[in-house]
Design a protein around this nucleic acid. Structure first.
Length: 572
RNA sequence: GGGCCUGUAGCUCAGUUGGUUAGAGCAGAGCGCUCAUAACGCUUUGGUCGUAGGUUCGAGUCCUACCGGGCCUACCA
């Protein structure tokens, strides 16, 4: 039995994620986790909320809550939505956890001991009105290049020119609008990534099977200009992990916290500790997933994320681990995704454009979304969500191909044989051919799932569903029944066994529907079909079942138009 | 500006190291079936593979230029 550690990029605490965020990390990670569990492998699937940084402080200030209370509340909101989407995290942690505080401070300490931290005196813009240092993009002003009056301190989004905050004319705080800004001296810690460049380069080079998207981004950062640059890992904020050197104070760094991108990936590790604590397990139980000196040698570690997260996972976090010199498990495969667009534009959290996870669940159950998003996962390029496509695809795949198959065979059986699997007759050449066909298709499905080829896996699964309809059409038990009832009985028995098989195979994509299928078939047998022949005799003659309700109701044109209108604007 | 990704039938996408008549699903057309959520099955119409050159016996696949879409570019996360 293989052991597989899976992490999804941790969603930022500030607000509810949209469908584009979901399909880029948590959902495919869940697909893979469910698949690996289904095959009988040992899985630890971790996710968490990423809670530190300026936007969290500002969002809390907006609601009037203390930032820690805001984060606690939003964590629960996100955890609840994740549950309702069927995201099967073994633990959904928090980057603000005590475990992460300790571990982040630990890493900073050992990196300093190894000579990989340097202190840098620098100047940053400080807003007297806001009483805080402002990140470049929180400073607005008039672009000296094109005159656009809402240029940000890092770049003018009108003329795309790269800017320095001090370039801006009439610079003001993007938070308060105050122009009472000054340049202040401050001191920060930098991680000497440049010293680890060759190690990182060699490490990336050794990853031959990673998506091009992943390695090309990493290579760009490694070789652009003078090569990989050192990176500031501290910030002048109140909310975050206090800068400490292991268990000791860090003289000169009082009142500062670690940069959110330093502590967020470390939460992948800390989250395992939270998982152990939450389940009353000893430290050894999580360390065997993360410490190669404590049993993690045979763990395969896979990360899922959107392309915007790649540099931090291919460079910063590995630099933290390599630089520590400690035997932490490093990522084996990094699956990255492009973005999902919404009806001709981008999904946007800041602008409230698109469909957000909570809204999606208000109108349809999770499986509709899971199926469509995964079968259109933006793997090779950005993908496009349209309501027409969503309606057409889910109606065809889920209602017609899969749902109707279940409906027709269960209802036919009920009318001719009653609600129990008919035991007469035996499988013959038709069934042997079906089993051979299914075996080939299931092995393809497994291969693509194993390789995290999400869209191809969805196509494979759909093809497996189609086989059921083809089988019924060609054997026509409704005809056979009139001349050879025993033969019809065997055909119906096969059809009912296909439902159980489909439930097992489909569970990673559509877990709720799979559970309803198993429930209707009155079985708890979720054995993975390594042996397809055996899988199709699992429900014996006499086994009682029930005809399930409609598995997937179709999306009507009226519904689609209604939703199209409702989600055409922006959310408040 | 630089780097990378991308442009294949009306739509969404496959096309392995260049190799005979470019594939799938949906939509469209025809036929069949009637167990079923008017569902299913079979057959079938659509493409000179963004444009222009080049390499090659042979290019959707490699090279160059150009046009279009996208992402990143290190202090948002």
């Amino acid at each position: 039995m293989a052991r597989i550690l899976i992490t999804s990029a941790i969603p930022y605490i500030n607000g509810i994620k949209h469908l584009g965020n979901l399909v880029g990390s948590q959902l495919p990670a869940d697909l893979y986790a469910r698949f690996q569990r289904g095959r009988g492998n040992e899985v630890l699937f971790l996710c968490a909320t990423d809670e530190h940084g300026t936007p969290a402080e500002l969002a809390a200030a907006k609601t009037g809550e203390p930032v820690d209370e805001f984060c606690t509340r939003m964590h629960e909101v996100q955890a609840d939505i994740a549950r309702r989407f069927g995201l099967s995290f073994d633990h959904f942690g928090r980057s603000s956890s005590p475990q992460n505080h300790k571990l982040t401070q630990h890493f900073a300490g050992v990196l300093a001991d190894n000579g990989l931290i340097r202190e840098v005196d620098e100047k940053q813009v400080y807003s007297n009105a806001d009483k805080r240092f402002l990140p470049d993009r929180y400073i607005e002003g008039t672009c000296p290049n094109c005159g656009y009056d809402k240029a940000r301190g890092d770049q003018c989004e009108n003329c795309t020119k790269q800017l320095d905050p001090t370039d801006l004319i009439d610079a003001r705080s993007a938070i308060s609008g105050s122009t009472d800004l000054e340049v202040r001296a401050t001191k920060h810690l930098y991680l000497r990534q440049s010293a680890l460049k060759d190690d990182l380069d060699a490490w990336i080079d050794s990853k031959k099977d990673w998506p091009i998207l992943t390695t090309s981004i990493a290579k760009k950062w490694l070789h652009d200009g003078d090569g990989l640059r050192d990176r500031g890992i501290t910030r002048d904020l109140d909310w975050g992990i206090p800068v400490r050197r292991g268990d000791d104070d860090w003289p000169g760094m009082e009142g500062k916290v670690f940069y959110v991108w330093f502590d967020a990936p470390i939460e992948y590790i800390a989250c395992a500790g939270e998982w152990a604590e939450a389940n009353g397990r000893p430290d050894a139980d999580w360390e065997r997933w993360w410490r190669t000196d404590k049993g993690a040698d045979d763990v395969r570690y896979v990360q899922f994320m959107g392309k915007d997260n790649v540099p931090f996972h291919t460079l910063s976090f590995p630099a933290t681990i390599l630089g520590s010199g400690e035997p932490w498990k490093m990522v084996d495969h990094l699956k990255s995704f492009n973005f999902l667009n919404y009806d001709g534009g981008q999904f946007s959290t800041s602008q409230g454009r698109g469909v957000f996870m909570d809204q999606a669940l208000e109108i349809l159950s999770a499986d509709y979304w899971r199926w469509w998003l995964l079968s259109h996962a933006p793997e090779s390029s950005d993908a496009e969500f349209t309501w027409e496509g969503f309606q057409a695809d889910t109606n065809k795949d889920l209602a017609d191909v899969l749902g109707n198959f279940i409906s027709r065979i269960t209802k036919f059986c009920r009318s001719k044989f009653g609600e129990a699997v008919p035991g007469d007759g035996a499988y013959g050449p038709d069934e042997a051919a079906l089993i051979a066909d299914l075996t080939t298709k299931i092995r393809n499905y497994e291969t693509h799932m194993e390789a995290m080829e999400v869209r191809k896996s969805a196509q494979d699964l759909r093809a497996i569903w189609v086989v059921g309809n083809e089988y019924l059409q060609s054997t026509a038990p409704w005809v056979t029944f009139k001349s050879d009832p025993d033969r019809a009985a065997a055909q119906v028995r096969m059809g009912l066994n296909l439902i159980r098989l489909y439930a097992v195979l489909s569970a990673p994509f559509i877990p709720d529907a799979a559970a309803r299928m198993l429930s209707a078939m009155n079985t708890l047998d979720t054995t993975w079909p390594d042996d397809v022949n055996a899988a199709l005799t699992a429900l014996p003659g006499g086994h009682e079942f029930s005809v399930p309700d409609v598995l997937f109701a179709k999306i009507t044109d009226d519904q689609r138009e209604d939703w199209q209108t409702r989600f055409s604007g922006v959310r408040d």
